[in-house]
Computed example of a mutant assay.
Amino acid sequence: MKQRDILWRYWPLLPIYPYSKRRTLRQEVLKNTIWTFDQVQGIFYVVVPIRMTIIRLETGGLLVYAPVAPTAECISLVRELEAEHGEVKFIVLPTISGLEHKVFVGPFARKFPQADVYVAPQQWSFPVNLPLSWLGFPPKRTYTLPQPYNKNPFGEEFDYAILGPIKLGLGAFGEVALFHKPSGTALVTDSVISIPKTPPESVQLDPYPLLFHARDSALDKIEDTPENRIKGWQRICLFATYFQPDALEVPTFKDTLQEAKQAPDRSKKAYYGLYPFGWQPHWQESFQQLQGNGRLLVAPILRTLILNRAPRETIKWANLLVSWHFERLIPCHFQAPLQVSPREFRQAFSFLEKEELPINQPKFPLPQEDLAPLKNIEETLEKRKLVPPRGEKL
């Protein structure tokens, strides 16, 4: 693989790690039928997988769900599938607010001029609400998915279900789940995740972020060991889901600068020695509660700030997905594919109900101490009327 094959020249549109250099990992989920394409992205080396899924159509051709950065490497991997299974016919943007998904759709669609682009209803952008054509979407072949469902543009092999839009003051949240009937596979975007104990292969293509966060202070050297990769990954998961978990200690600015001056690596790559983090011993217990043996869960930010604004609508959407009786679930982040039951999926949304569904497995309640910063954010946003109040539990 040549270095230029992984370059993403439009990275300033979303200036987050890994910036212009993005590796792509393709995995065949179901032989000659479903493939995932994983890249990584994040801020301050808090990197998690972002995933595109491609499904072969029974009538010939391919459907693309949630495009990733169309680097030369990524497009080459898609072209290999086109050569064997037919051209890309559909491109689906399944979210209305997720810039990490939306920013890639226009450039990706230009690589496949024969494909129709379908987007979730009521798209918006921040800080200025721009038309999709200004964001690079091809205007003559971009369509909004019908809502309510009246005509399926993808044919009889697919169903889809739209959550939202859930109004959030400045904007809205929405997600399109897609069900491939022949394989019994459901695709979702951000609604649920499953966190592995060890870092996924896509994250280990460049282990530096893992090793960066495995340190206990800026004075520690970067050392590549299996233990440090796991340690760094688990801390990254706490950052990515809670932002400020209870076990995190933030030193003063003065102490951070003093340590930076003594750091063994003061290069640009190491943020000039800056490492404003410390961890209390119970961070591992916090991760275990979050990870919950790989159970499905709604990410803390979604359950604290978004989905609890519309419990009834969310539960209705979750019940519709349960009715699909899917055998396999592929989210756009963290672990995939997942061999989970519809009941396990439905259980993930029990926090929206007064009585949780009974389950025959250990329970892993999220620590209230870890949720406290998000709840403080929620309280501030509600006071300033930037988000609507919580909906009543069912």
Rank of each mutant, 00 (worst) to 15 (best):
Q3G: 08
L7S: 12
W8I: 03
R22V: 14
T24R: 10
T24N: 13
E28W: 15
V29H: 07
F37W: 02
Q41R: 13
V48S: 14
P49K: 02
M52N: 12
I55E: 04
I55W: 08
R56S: 06
L57K: 07
E58M: 08
V64G: 05
A66E: 00
T71H: 03
A72C: 10
V78T: 00
R79N: 00
V88T: 01
K89A: 10
K89G: 11
I91S: 02
I91H: 03
P94T: 00
H101R: 03
F104Q: 08
P121T: 05
P121M: 03
Q123V: 04
Q123S: 14
N129I: 09
G136T: 00
R141L: 02
T144R: 14
Q147D: 11
Q147E: 14
P148M: 03
N150C: 10
K151D: 15
Y160E: 05
A161F: 12
I162P: 03
K167G: 11
G169K: 04
F173S: 03
E175G: 06
A177N: 06
L178E: 10
P182N: 09
T185H: 03
V188A: 07
I193E: 15
P196K: 11
L205S: 12
R215H: 04
S217K: 05
S217Q: 06
I222V: 13
T225K: 09
T225R: 07
E227V: 11
E227D: 06
I230W: 07
R235I: 04
F239W: 02
A240Y: 13
Y242R: 08
L248H: 05
E249F: 13
V250P: 15
K254R: 12
T256I: 01
A270R: 13
L274T: 08
P276L: 00
G278F: 05
Q280D: 09
P281L: 11
P281C: 06
Q288G: 11
Q289F: 09
L290T: 09
L290I: 09
G292A: 11
L297N: 04
V298W: 09
L307A: 04
W317G: 04
N319D: 10
L320Q: 12
V322S: 11
S323R: 09
W324Q: 02
R343S: 15
Q347G: 14
S350N: 11
L352A: 03
E355Y: 03
P358S: 04
P358H: 04
P358Y: 09
I359R: 12
Q361I: 13
K363V: 15
Q368H: 09
E378G: 06
P388M: 06
P389S: 00
R390D: 15
G391H: 02
L394I: 13
